[in-house]
Design a binder for these strands. Sequence first.
DNA 1: ATATATATTCGCAAAATACAACTAATCCCA
DNA 2: TGGGATTAGTTGTATTTTGCGAATATATAT
Lengths: 148, 148
Amino acid sequence: MENTRELFQIMTRRFGFLNKNCCSVGDHDISLVQSHILYEIDRQHHPSMQQIADTLGIDITTFSRQIQSLVKMNLVKKTPSSEDRRVSILSLTPGGKDAAAAIDKKMNAYLNEVFSHMSDFEKEIVVRSIRLLNSCMAKSAGCCNPMG
Amino acid sequence: MENTRELFQIMTRRFGFLNKNCCSVGDHDISLVQSHILYEIDRQHHPSMQQIADTLGIDITTFSRQIQSLVKMNLVKKTPSSEDRRVSILSLTPGGKDAAAAIDKKMNAYLNEVFSHMSDFEKEIVVRSIRLLNSCMAKSAGCCNPMG
DNA sequence: ATATATATTCGCAAAATACAACTAATCCCA
DNA sequence: TGGGATTAGTTGTATTTTGCGAATATATAT
């Protein structure tokens, strides 16, 4: 591990693999993108289609079809907004919540397993570091600021 | 930012976006996957097809096609191994090295920009943390250990 | 000789994605 | 208030990527 970029390249790839491996839940296969969609719907407050699509940087037409799939799978519900009947408010069905929870569990289990190889002190430092990194990435003028 | 998983979810997504945005170099458009392939060919010592495909978790038939594209773009060279003439040794052409260097430059520029929002001390801590995280992920029994 | 390993190729099907064109609802301002 | 512009979302169409299975070629191992 020589340089900084290498460090980050490997780390993000490992997380990529992690994501990939963590997305078959119950009887449905959930793609990486779909797991991010579920995650964001759960996280945001009565989000619209456009909101989630923007957050994830997905084209709205692609997103529309993804949502159709998730609705068919009974994981997501679309409700017309009472304020603006053009917009659809997204929410997780009970099944969707279960799926999100199952993915969350898997991810946390893996993270705990990883953290089990460090001391509590080290873990604390690492978590703080990631938090700092996130806030600095958010400050960054350039690219990748989909979260606001 | 409440829990640990959220922290990592957001971080890896931001890096995903970063990767996505960093892959148009010169006259060729380089996809995310292709940039990872270039990166790994550069990093490994006289790698074979199978080696890189395994590292990146890509199906060998898909990988074969990707390599064909990269060879056509004059970024990658295939050389039959002298030890085992079934295997093709992969290497970067001068153009491939340029492309890899250009991507590296973009990534490092972004990382520096991110780090510019912290003190030297904080940066040091963060880099150490990522290094520790990588080594613990490598130790992890479970999934995502494509690097060896 | 037979089995095994590396890689290529082909056909197929599924999925993701993008662009353009479209509908429907809302906004705005003259 | 009315009509054009704008916005949210959908749908048609086409492209691309990917994976799987099977067949092939070639080289290596037992």
